[in-house]
Nucleic acid binder design. Structure first.
Lengths: 232, 232
DNA sequence: CTATTGACTTGATAATAATCAAACCAGAGC
DNA sequence: GCTCTGGTTTGATTATTATCAAGTCAATAG
């Protein structure tokens, strides 16, 4: 690949510290592709041929079993996904689809593995990234196991609200049915959960969220850094 | 630390390939300690001072929120826990307690980080280990989100049954209330789930599990490698 | 402008799981 | 042996969540 996106990728924590020569190796084998919305990029169970980097657009990671399906995460620029499968050279555990028109860089897993084996800085960066992903998933699991659906929604809204700097109006970016799936509930249940948060000063009209009394909502949500902090 | 356990630790995938000098550095700063049962080794939120290696006994990783508590994992010899917190130098997301009398090696996080920075082989081993942990957690999350409690129990039993080589009688090792918590349900609910599996040839008396018709149970459980395989 | 589509909502009902309370039971200590 | 303790089970009830069905609504294609 030879394109304007190369410096963008290079600036990611994952690629920032590696040797120039190794980065070049990765880029030489890379493909930059543009996908339309609703395209299934990878399917769980398939061998992990590529490490993916979302440059533009958004990608949903999801998993299915026995006719059911659940959203595991939404990936937005600029970040990678299915790093763990690539590193372990194991089949994907999740599927991925584009939510909108997206530009994605595909790095052949063999190249990633080869560079991983020779470039210590890259290996260390991979560790940091993976540890972050792992901790994110620990938080998600705690959220699911320790909270009811209304509590999960309340905390989700507070996280977005805080991240956006406590704005008067907040956009819900994600479709409600996908949010419901991510939070581990049905769309109907989410609809009712939203209603029940009205008592705490939350109104959601279309995709616009308003939180009139954050303190009140916090009283219900009881957020904790060990579940709700983005960093850590 | 200077003890008989050193070669045991050295043989772990995590430490196998690192330079002898760096391994010695780690061991020099290490403590081997014996803990009685029910001792809280670490508390979530605390800074990650040590990487722990369970040599003997067993340790439960758990997390709490708002008066509730859930079992996240059980760690048995020989393996490490809270690697991610150590690497990221971030507070623990989970607490840990001994389940029985246990011998545990404590490796100061500063040493682990220092060696991680200079020993590429160790860094790569950490990646492999972390990727494995991450994928294990993805599977656990899929299990929780895609299955009912009876389905989770059925698959849990099949995993243990298969791992043990399909024995006539299988020991349930873990206390039922802890299993219930791990599987995301109450003890009462687990008790009823066990009963409902009798229709599929499962009997559990005390801690002894018998599966008279695995095929029948598989028909209910519908295990998939993407959730239920230990490897991958 | 109308028809269609798909997301979202609402209501009714059913399934699932949690809670509360009371036994039951096995092991540890006396 | 007994008693105590804590895990487990059972039953009754409630809470939570899912399912099914019918509607609303907004965007869009024709």
């Amino acid at each position: 690949m030879r394109s304007a996106e190369t410096p963008l990728i290079r600036s990611l924590p994952l690629f920032r510290d590696m040797a120039e020569a190794n980065f070049d190796t990765l880029m030489r084998g890379a493909y930059l592709q543009t996908f339309p919305p609703q395209i299934e990029l990878i399917t769980e169970g398939d061998p992990s041929d590529f490490l993916h980097v979302v440059i533009d657009g958004s990608v949903e990671l999801f998993a299915g079993w026995n006719g059911r399906e659940t959203v595991m995460a939404t990936v937005r620029p600029i970040s990678t996904f299915i790093l763990a499968a690539t590193i372990r050279n194991a089949p994907y555990l999740m599927s991925a689809r584009t939510l909108e028109k997206s530009r994605i860089v595909l790095l052949p897993s063999v190249d990633v593995q080869a560079v991983f084996d020779v470039d210590a800085a890259f290996a260390r960066a991979v560790v940091t990234e993976l540890a972050q992903c792992y901790r994110g998933l620990v938080k998600h699991t705690k959220d699911l196991k320790l909270r009811t659906s209304v509590e999960r929604l309340a905390n989700y809204l507070l996280r977005k609200y805080t991240a956006a700097g406590a704005p008067a109006a907040l956009d819900l970016v994600i479709e409600k049915r996908r949010l419901a799936s991510y939070l581990g509930m049905t769309p109907e249940n989410l609809s009712r959960a939203i209603k029940s948060l009205q008592a705490y000063g939350v109104t959601i009209e279309g995709s616009t969220v308003r939180i009139s009394d954050p303190a009140d909502l916090i009283g219900l949500a009881k957020p904790t850094p060990r579940i709700d902090d983005a960093a850590h």
